[in-house]
């Protein structure tokens, strides 16, 4: 741990020497970028679906507040992730233009920003919505920042498997905001995202393996090899396809959703088989792109199905 921390600090100082000497005055847009807005939008969307599907009524203003807290909490996690990972971000082409490695925001400012927003989002959720959703939000932030970012990411190829729990919890938080409970229905949505995460990330890491290898992050292709990664992607896809049917089987989504989820799951498996057989970057990127579409469509179908009263 000491070695990793020392290395992190020395590299961050090297990458952002300007930030330490000149105390950069990040613009509002730089701080907004620290919130990882693209990730935040997916988190808000799945949280919204959990909120809409939950039985019971919630005043729209309180519902909006719950979503805002989820969004700010997710953004705060992103800022703290960028603070801690500034050293490896500076050495990867995909991330070196982020606010800290590019010297637009100092590491200290990013850390303070993340901590303040984390505390504010959890307290606001607890005071204005309910205690359970606030506790779940606090656990999600803790799991992403401490368990995933600080511990798992640099130590094990199972990093995104276990760490994926933090990305899977927003529908549970949304559901808890309405009902004040955690139920089998919300946990099924959580399981869906949890099982979706490994094939989604591993498809990308097959293509970016060299980048991850150069900075010492033990992604599955670097540790177990591409062949094993493709096999594991296929295994997760086979597990994911029936999990997509859970909302219909548990009775909180209709037949239209069930049929669509079945077909979308089959396409996911087919693209995973194709990646396993073809073994090229193009097939990996196609699966990566499709995985985003798959999750978006499933949750959009759940949302539309409930709002439009589809069978």
């Amino acid at each position: 741990m000491t070695i990793v921390t020392d290395h992190r600090l020395s590299t961050a100082q090297g990458a952002g020497s300007a930030s330490l000497e000149a105390d950069p005055d990040g613009r509002a847009s730089d701080f907004f970028a620290l919130l990882k807005p693209r990730v935040m939008s997916l988190v808000v969307f799945t949280g919204l679906v959990g909120l809409v599907l939950a039985p019971g009524d919630l005043n729209p203003i309180i519902g909006f507040t719950a979503l805002l807290c989820i969004a700010v909490g997710a953004g705060a996690s992103g800022a703290l992730n960028m603070w801690y990972d500034a050293d490896i971000d500076a050495r990867m082409s995909r991330t070196q233009s982020r606010p800290i490695p590019s010297g637009r925001v100092s590491a200290g400012d990013a850390k303070a920003f993340g901590i303040v927003l984390s505390v504010a989002s959890v307290l606001t959720m607890g005071l204005l919505v309910n205690v359970l959703s606030a506790a779940l939000l606090a656990f999600t932030i803790f799991f992403y920042v401490v368990v995933y970012t600080m511990y798992l990411k640099r130590r094990t190829p199972q990093n995104i498997v276990i760490g994926g729990l933090s990305g899977a919890l927003p529908p549970v938080i949304g559901w808890a905001a309405v009902t004040g409970t955690v139920s089998i229905e919300s946990l099924s949505l959580c399981a869906l995202i949890f099982v979706w995460t490994p094939p989604h990330f591993w498809a990308l890491s097959l293509v970016k393996a060299a980048d991850y290898g150069a900075v010492g992050v033990p992604m599955m292709p670097n540790v177990a090899g591409p062949e094993s990664t493709r096999r594991q992607i296929l295994a997760y896809a086979v597990l994911l396809a029936p999990l997509g049917l859970a909302p219909t089987l548990l009775g909180f989504a209709g037949l239209v959703y069930g049929v669509a989820a079945g077909l979308l799951g089959l396409v996911f498996v087919a693209l995973s088989v194709r990646l396993y057989l073809k073994r090229d970057d193009r097939a990996a990127m196609q699966l990566f792109g499709y995985s985003i579409l798959y999750l978006f469509l499933l949750f959009a179908l759940l949302l539309v199905g409930r709002l439009a009263g589809l069978p």
Binding site: D25, G26, R27, A28, F31, I62, A120, T124, L128
Partner: peptide, 27 residues
């Protein structure tokens, strides 16, 4: 001058937070 945009954003965020707390209190 350099920090103006971020100070304005911070001010707006704080005002929005107060408005939300006020509205939820009313509810």
């Amino acid at each position: 001058r350099r920090r103006r945009s971020r100070n304005i954003a911070l001010g707006l965020a704080l005002v929005a937070w107060v408005v939300i707390i006020f509205l939820v209190s009313l509810v």
